[in-house]
Computed example of a mutant assay.
Amino acid sequence: MRLGKRIREIEHEDRLDPLVARLKGLAERLPSGTARDVLHGVQLGHPLHPIMIHLPMGTWTAAVLLDLLPGDHRREARALVDIGLLTVSPAVLSGLADWAQQHERHQRVGVVHVAANGMGTLLFGASSLARARGRWGWGKGLALAGLGAIGLGGTLGGHIAYHRAGGANSADHFVDLVPEGWHDLGELEAYPEGNPAGADVDGVPVVVARTKDAVSVLMGTCPHMGAPLAEGELADGCLRCPWHGSEFRLDDGTVVHGPATAPVEPFETSIVDGRLWVRLSPA
């Protein structure tokens, strides 16, 4: 059986749900507002977690490689192990913020991902302690075991990120499906003021947000996890996702608050004889 199939079996393991609940309790203690947006990577335009994990994984991999090379690299290897330990916290916090806003199947794999990386961190911590006491052989062995653990954790993280698209833009493919030119969405009066309404452009979902002063049309799928934005709500010039609360500006689709990090694609609008026409805004 392929490893990928084994990992998919974890998604259906409901015995992990108590651990999921406990970890979600920890995630709820993370700061909200701008601090939470930073953890998600809103300001970057893509998730922060994949960047942060390079710091501990890179330094620990380099430390193990130095351990395996001929010559005396004990001082440098120990420094790299310790640097990795110092950079674990931001990687954990950013990952926890993202994980708490994902689907159940992501979260079940995520707790195993956390357990593997946690074991790896403990092993590298023990390696650092052994090196500090002059037990270099133990230090090297523990570091090698730790690298194996975080390698497994990284495999599980890769499954969440790539196979299940956790953190990927769930609406990006729709951009290539919208035909060029203007498209008729029907009578403007068919779209009520103050509430988002769904429509489609040649099968591509869009959301129409009509206010007293303007009408805005955005791609109808949330980039975060694919929620139907027509089921969301309008607030302070923004459209709020119905699933995880991401907020997007009505005028240009910019992310105001996460967990989404990619903007919603906006459409240009034109009212002709009481009918609403739209076309995808140029880059």
Rank of each mutant, 00 (worst) to 15 (best):
L122V: 13
H183Q: 08
A116T: 10
H103R: 13
L218P: 00
V109L: 12
L234N: 13
G198P: 01
V206M: 10
V109D: 10
P242V: 03
A143C: 06
D202W: 10
H159K: 08
G226L: 03
G232C: 09
L144W: 07
D202N: 09
R164A: 08
F124N: 04
M119V: 14
A149I: 02
V109H: 09
H244K: 08
G118F: 15
I160C: 08
A171E: 11
H183F: 05
W136G: 03
S170V: 00
A197D: 05
L152Y: 11
L144F: 14
L185I: 03
D184R: 01
G154E: 13
G151A: 15
D236Q: 12
H183G: 01
T221I: 15
G153Y: 14
G158Y: 15
W138E: 11
F124L: 08
A197V: 02
V215C: 03
L142F: 11
L234M: 15
E193T: 04
E180H: 07
D176I: 02
G167Y: 04
G151H: 06
I150G: 01
N195W: 12
G220I: 11
V215T: 14
A214G: 00
L129D: 05
P179Y: 02
A115D: 02
R108F: 07
G167T: 04
A165F: 04
Q107I: 00
G198Y: 00
V111H: 03
P223I: 05
L142C: 11
A149D: 02
P179R: 07
L239I: 05
Y162G: 07
A126L: 13
E189K: 06
G153R: 12
G203C: 03
R240H: 09
A168Q: 15
A149K: 05
A165N: 15
M225W: 01
V215H: 12
A130C: 00
A199E: 08
R133P: 00
T221N: 05
S127D: 10
A143K: 01
R240M: 10
G232I: 03
P228S: 15
A168P: 04
Y191N: 02
L122P: 03
P242L: 02
A130H: 12
G232D: 12
A165L: 13
A214R: 14
G151D: 03
P179H: 09
P228I: 04
G220H: 14
V109T: 10
G232W: 09
V217F: 08
H106C: 06
E233N: 08
G157L: 07
G181K: 15
V217L: 05
L144E: 11
T121R: 10
C241F: 08
M119Y: 10
V111A: 05
G134R: 11
V112R: 15
L123K: 07
H244N: 11
L142I: 01
G154K: 15
